[in-house]
Nucleic acid binder design. Structure first.
Length: 574
RNA sequence: CGGGGUGUAGCGCAGUUGGUAGCGCGUAUGGUUCGGGACCAUAAGGCCGCGAGUUCGAGUCUCGCCACUCCGACCA
């Protein structure tokens, strides 16, 4: 590719609305251009990178017997009615009517389409297991996009779906997929990525893993133990909590607490520890006239994902202030009007006494509460967030927290979709059974952002050999001189003929500084400087972008040197 | 969904008490330079987000809308 003709402007300044490094670098290098909120165009370098990543994904998916297919982007309402998700999914799914007034939607995931494809086409156990996957555009109307390609509305995703006769078979295949994913992320050049146990959400599935890139700008919090290797998303993480001294047991008593409405104000007003308070957190249930009130020890926080699972309802944070009979700031577990209200108690309250809880009337709390004596909950459920410094649930060593970007996930779905869509297969006894499913996703655009986020220096991107749009960037200094032009293009053509992708900076009247700066910014793994100075000695300069080490190589052996570097770099990414 | 912020040349920004629009980068042309974002000269490029209102006069003041963006959505 001739740089002079490459569409995509490289700029010095970071646009003011850009907050994270990967976004800034991709914009500055001219790889992406925003079209609308959360919707981007990719210029050629980014698209080539995308294709390189997709090629690696295909190889690894095909290795585990994946069959590449293509589902439609636009689907009819009925297909999604059949799984029940047309109504349970909210406004993140884009819906529209076709010219005949029929309800249609844009695909945000393809479980329904995959079952539709396999149903009745696969009818015997002899045809299972099978895995179908596609690489395709998805649209999700995210409430809040951010971070350039990290969280967008339209994106390219590899999504795969496997079908099995038994959970055991699914589990075996799942492990193979776990390994394939590790291969993919390693091969595209990511380094600080891990797989963690994750939330299975409302799907009721059993096991799920997320692949996370560890980075400060990550949106997810991960709970990690260095000692035994425990790794979990905050949404499902558990911990061992240390015993708490509740002080002296006493009888219940109502106390005036004025306008102390939150835990900080309450502990300050009564001069007590947070561990002696019971926090109430209210949630609404989407689509139902029901509230969920969670009670938890005052020093802890409610983990929404765990609570969601505990009550099996789609809860959303709720503002008790204006629209309910709850007394905001004084909600308590004694005498709470529980009409249309589900109450959940966290495990931290098991055995707690000498506690302060809201009195369910303004300006009053109740102290001296002994939970098992005065409240007698039916059960205690773990709905608390893990805190830094708590102990690993496996080995008891201190846990630490890190942020991560989710770059892929795999999921044992079970029979949710095959049952709801009534897909059966005959087993070896001639009985109709529901196959069990797994699903497997990778965001391609997010992988590009992740590479940019992780692999860079103050000058720009450092692209891994396996995914770089061009492996070689030829900087032709003084290309107005015929010898430079001749040698630079000779190199360019030779690389092309050998199938080595190259970009040549053929711009005239552009200063050397600009050429170097652009090469640094765009981050191709190998740079070759062709200049009058070097050619005087019959040499060209070969520079590795990752280290910026320079070496002078005779013009005749440059291609051989490039081939060696490529081979070395690719070996590291095997 | 709640709360901020910002919309002026392709990009980054300035624009005073209201008086007919500016800087840097980039682009074009000519010239001098040229191994780390060169210099000189000249030029092109604007519905000042959109719509009302106040005013002799609005980029500037008022109201409404739209777009983009950041933060929050653990407050009991």
């Amino acid at each position: 590719m001739l740089l002079s003709k490459l569409v995509g402007e490289r700029v010095k300044e970071t646009p003011s609305d850009v907050k994270i490094l990967s976004h800034s670098l991709l914009v500055r290098a001219g790889f992406i251009k925003a079209v609308a909120n959360g919707i981007f165009s990719l210029t050629s370098p980014a698209q080539l990178m995308s294709l390189n990543i997709e090629a690696i994904i295909r190889e690894e998916m095909n290795k585990i017997d994946g069959q590449e297919v293509k589902f439609p982007v636009v689907m009819p309402r009925e297909l999604w009615e059949s799984s029940g998700r047309y109504s349970t999914i909210g406004s993140e799914m884009a819906r529209f009517k076709d010219r005949g007034g029929k309800d249609m939607l844009l695909g945000m995931t393809h479980e329904e389409a995959s079952v539709h494809m396999v149903k009745n086409t696969v009818s015997s156990y002899a045809q299972l297991p099978c895995m179908i996957y596609q690489i395709q555009t998805k649209f999700r109307d995210e409430p809040r996009c951010r971070g350039g390609l990290i969280r967008v509305r339209e994106f390219t995703m590899k999504d795969g779906y496997s079908f099995h006769m038994t959970d055991d078979d699914l589990s075996k295949y799942y492990d193979k997929c776990l390994e394939a994913y590790h291969n993919i992320f390693r091969r595209i050049g990511l380094k600080r990525f891990i797989s963690v146990k994750s939330d299975t959400g409302m799907m009721g599935g059993s096991i799920a893993h997320e692949f996370m890139l560890l980075t400060d700008v990550g949106e997810d919090t991960l709970v990690l133990c260095d000692e035994c290797g425990y790794k979990a998303n905050m949404e499902v993480a558990t911990s061992k909590r240390f015993g708490v001294d509740f002080g002296k047991n006493s009888a219940m008593e109502e106390v005036f607490t004025a306008d102390a409405k939150d835990i900080d104000a309450l502990t300050a007003y009564l001069n007590i520890e947070k561990t002696n308070t019971i926090k109430a957190v209210a949630f609404a249930v989407r689509g139902e006239d029901t509230l969920v009130v969670a009670f938890i020890r005052g020093d802890l926080e409610v983990n929404e994902a765990k609570l969601k699972k505990a009550v099996m309802k789609n809860i959303v944070p709720f503002d008790a202030e204006n629209e309910s009979e709850l007394t905001a700031g004084n909600i308590g577990c004694i005498g709470l009007n529980s009409k249309n209200t589900l109450v959940v108690f966290d495990k931290s309250l098991e055995g707690a006494y000498n506690m302060v809880t809201g009195a369910n009337k303004a300006e009053y709390h109740i102290k001296g509460v002994d939970v098992s004596r005065d409240v007698k909950p039916k059960e205690f459920v773990d709905i608390a967030k893990v805190k830094l410094g708590e102990a690993c649930p496996i080995c008891g060593k201190p846990l630490h927290l890190e942020n991560g970007i989710e770059i892929g996930n795999i999921f044992q779905l079970g029979t949710k979709y095959t049952k709801s869509m009534n897909m059966t297969v005959l087993n070896d006894k001639g009985e109709a059974v529901y196959p069990t499913m797994g699903c497997y996703g990778i965001g391609v655009g997010r992988a590009i952002a992740s590479i940019a986020q992780e692999s860079n220096d103050e000058k720009g991107l450092i692209l891994p050999m396996s995914v770089a749009p061009y492996r070689v960037h030829i900087c032709a200094l003084r290309i107005d001189e015929p010898l430079v032009k001749e040698k630079a293009f000779a190199l360019y053509n030779e690389l092309k003929s050998k199938g080595i992708s190259a970009l040549i900076d053929d711009r005239e009247n552009v200063s050397n500084g600009v050429k170097f700066a652009d090469a640094d910014l765009m981050g191709m793994p190998i740079r070759v400087v062709v200049s009058p100075r070097g050619l005087q000695n019959g040499e060209m300069e070969v520079v590795k972008r990752s280290t910026l080490e320079k070496e002078n190589v005779s013009a005749e052996s440059v291609v051989a040197r490039i081939e060696t570097i490529i081979a070395e770099e690719m070996e590291k990414l095997k």
